[in-house]
Simulated assay, not measured.
Amino acid sequence: MTGVKLYEELKGIRGKDGYPDKELEEYLVNKIFPKTALELTLGLSNVTAGFYGFALKHVGQQCGWDKVDSISKSVFRELGQLKTKELHESGIEIPKDTRALAVVFIAAVYNASPEYNFEFQKYTPEETIMRILGASRYFRIARKLGIEAHISWPVLVPFFEGIAQQTGIECKVEIETRKLEDDGRCDCLARFTLI
């Protein structure tokens, strides 16, 4: 399979590109353009991780390593708030209890975090328990850059706290990390309990 099929599907965006000649366009599409939606999504995921990792690395180098964790937490908290707002604005009904954290997380996984999978162990208004597994692109890049010791893991804790804040839900967010490997492979148990 070549990148031509996906390229054709994205003509609405890529159709505005201007090449010096058709030969170069065909060459680049066949050699470089992602061949599948999965390849495209994982490539974008790596770019997202790169922005996170390199930004924190430069914060540490220029402002001090003691600033890195608080900035990471702030970014993830605000991402949780943003994802909640976006989901609400799209007309999706968000429960007003612990299930909201899971629903917003799933929306984020579907749209921007392809390397995570989830399994529900409990899904009630009072308590939601999910197993999150797959790969943490954020840990993978932090490890690669040698900055992981300056960040609290898992970074999803403030993300979920941001969801709770945005929805006005008072709940306890706990994440037990069962596995977190150098390549980002992870297995976590997230528990959200009404206070």
Results as ranks from 00 to 15, higher is better:
Q165K: 14
G60R: 09
A135F: 12
Q61V: 00
S113M: 15
A37F: 13
Q62K: 01
G50D: 06
T167S: 13
A55I: 12
P114R: 00
E78G: 00
K179A: 09
I94E: 11
C186Q: 08
F118A: 10
V4G: 00
I13A: 11
T48G: 06
E23I: 03
L133K: 10
R143M: 03
L28E: 14
L79H: 01
L24P: 00
G60K: 07
K172R: 15
K22I: 09
E181M: 10
R99E: 13
L38P: 03
F105H: 10
L194T: 12
S136W: 03
N117P: 00
A149N: 15
A135I: 11
Y116V: 05
C188W: 15
L38H: 02
F120Y: 11
F33A: 00
R140D: 09
G53I: 07
T98A: 11
L6V: 12
L189P: 06
Y7A: 07
S70K: 02
D182T: 00
C186Y: 01
T167M: 15
N46Y: 09
I195K: 15
R185S: 13
Y116E: 09
Q165P: 00
K179F: 00
E126A: 13
R77E: 08
E23W: 13
G3T: 04
I141Y: 07
V68Q: 01
L101T: 10
M1T: 08
F160M: 09
A112K: 06
I92G: 02
L133S: 10
L79D: 00
G168S: 08
A149Y: 07
F33L: 02
F33R: 05
A149E: 15
Y110A: 08
W65M: 02
E174H: 14
G91L: 05
E127M: 12
N46G: 13
E78H: 11
I163W: 01
L145Q: 11
D182C: 01
E26D: 13
R191F: 00
M1L: 10
I169E: 04
E126H: 05
K57Q: 06
A49I: 02
S72T: 04
I169A: 02
V75K: 03
P34A: 14
A164I: 01
L38A: 13
R14W: 12
R140Y: 12
F160S: 09
F120D: 01
G184W: 14
Y110H: 09
K85Y: 02
Y138K: 03
D21N: 15
K16P: 02
F54W: 07
L42Y: 12
P158F: 12
S136H: 03
G53Y: 02
L28S: 04
G64W: 05
G134H: 04
Y110T: 13
G184K: 07
I163D: 06
A142V: 12
